Simulated scan of single mutants.
Amino acid sequence: MHRGKGMKFVGDSRVLALSERKPNIPKDYSEYPGKTEAFWPNFLLKEWMVGAVFLVGILCLTIAHPAPLERIADPTDTGYIPLPDWYFLFLYQLLKYTFASGPYTVIGAMVIPGLTFGGLLLAPFLDRGPERRAIRRPFATGFMLLAIAATVFLTWQSVATHDWKKAEAQGKIVAKVDIDKNNEGYKVFKDQGCINCHGENLQGGAGAPSLIGTGLKAEEIAKIAKSGKGNMPPGIFKGNDDQLKKLTEFISGLGE
C-alpha cells in the first residue's frame, strides 16, 4: 500500500489488532454497570468512612472504660492466672481442651490455627466465581461462617469459665511499704520459711496472698499461722509462742 511520497506501510500478521483482547486482561469496570465501581475515590472513600466510625467508637470505649492496671508481674508467682487480651481468648480457650493441651499443645497452638488461617487465606483462590452475593458463594461463605462461629463460641467459653474473682485478687495493686528487715518479727518470718511463699517483701506469690495491709489483728494472724487457711495447710509455723507473737505483731503492723 502506497501513501504519500516514498511512504510504504507493510502489514504484519504477528502484530495483534487493537480490537482483539488478550484472555488474561480483565474487562474494564465500566463494562459492568451497577455491579462494580472505581477504586478511587468511590470504594476507598467508603472504606475510610467505615474505618473512621470504628476508630472513633474504640476511642470512646477506651475513654469510658480504661484498661485496669494490675500489680507488677512477678515471675516467682506460679499461682497467678494469666489472661490474654480479648482477641486471643479463643486460642486461650482452645488450649484448655484435652486434644490441644499437654502433650498435644503443638496441635492446639500451631496445627489447628495454622490450618484455619491457611484455609481463610486460600478461600479466594479456591472459590474464584464472579458472583458477589454471599448466598451464591457457598464455599467461601460457609467457611467464613464456621470460623466466626468457632471464634465466638471459644471466646464466650473462655470468659464464662474464667475465675474472675481470684484473678482480680491476685492482680490487685498493693501499696508499697518499707519493710524493716532488721525487725525481730521479720527474722522469724524468714527463719520459719514464710519467705518462700509470701516473698521477700511480703508481697505474696506462689499462690500465697500478700501480707501487707491485711487488716487482721495479731490474734487472727496467729490463728491462721497455726490452723492454716486456703492453700496454707495447718502446722506450717514451727516456732514457739514468743516467736509467734513477734511475727504476728510485725505482720499486723504492716500497711497501717
Results as ranks from 00 to 15, higher is better:
Leu247Val: 07
Ala149Pro: 05
Leu145Trp: 11
Asn196Thr: 00
Ala149Phe: 11
Val152His: 04
Tyr97His: 05
Gly4Trp: 09
Thr161Arg: 14
Lys5Gly: 13
Thr116Leu: 10
Lys223Arg: 08
Asp180Val: 04
Tyr92Ser: 14
Tyr186Gln: 01
Ile148Val: 15
Asn24Gly: 05
Phe189Ser: 02
Tyr186Gly: 01
Phe99Asp: 01
Cys197Gly: 01
Leu95Ile: 00
Arg71Thr: 06
Arg137Met: 02
Val188Lys: 11
Pro103Lys: 00
Ile224Asp: 09
Tyr80Asp: 01
Ile63His: 15
Val174Gly: 09
Asp127Glu: 00
Ile212Gly: 08
Ser30Ala: 12
Thr78Tyr: 12
Glu31Asp: 12
Phe237Ser: 10
Ala150Lys: 06
Tyr92Gly: 09
Ile63Arg: 15
Glu184Leu: 11
Leu16Phe: 11
Tyr97Ala: 00
Lys172Gln: 11
Asn201Tyr: 01
Asp242Val: 11
Phe250Tyr: 15
Lys22Ile: 04
Glu249Phe: 13
Gly142Glu: 08
Gly215Thr: 11
Arg128Ser: 09
Ile179Thr: 02
Asp178Trp: 13
Phe43Lys: 15
Ala134Gln: 13
Leu55Gly: 10
Lys238Gln: 12
Thr105Asn: 00
Pro209Asn: 08
Arg71Ser: 05
Gly228Pro: 05
Val111Pro: 02
Gly129Arg: 08
Ala134Arg: 11
Glu219Val: 07
Val10Gln: 05
Val177Thr: 04
Gly129Asn: 07
Phe9Asp: 06
Asp28Asn: 09
Arg136Ser: 10
Gly171Thr: 09
Gly129Ala: 04
Gly228Glu: 03
Leu146Asn: 09
Leu211Ala: 06
Gln243Ala: 11
Gly118Val: 09
Ser227Ala: 15
Thr116Met: 13
Ile179Asp: 02
Phe90Trp: 09
Met49Gln: 12
Glu219Trp: 01
Lys35Asp: 14
Val15Ile: 05
Gln203Pro: 02
Val106Gly: 08
Lys217Pro: 14
Pro66Glu: 14
Gly108Pro: 00
Leu254Trp: 09
Leu122Tyr: 01
Thr116Val: 13
His198Lys: 03
Asp74His: 10
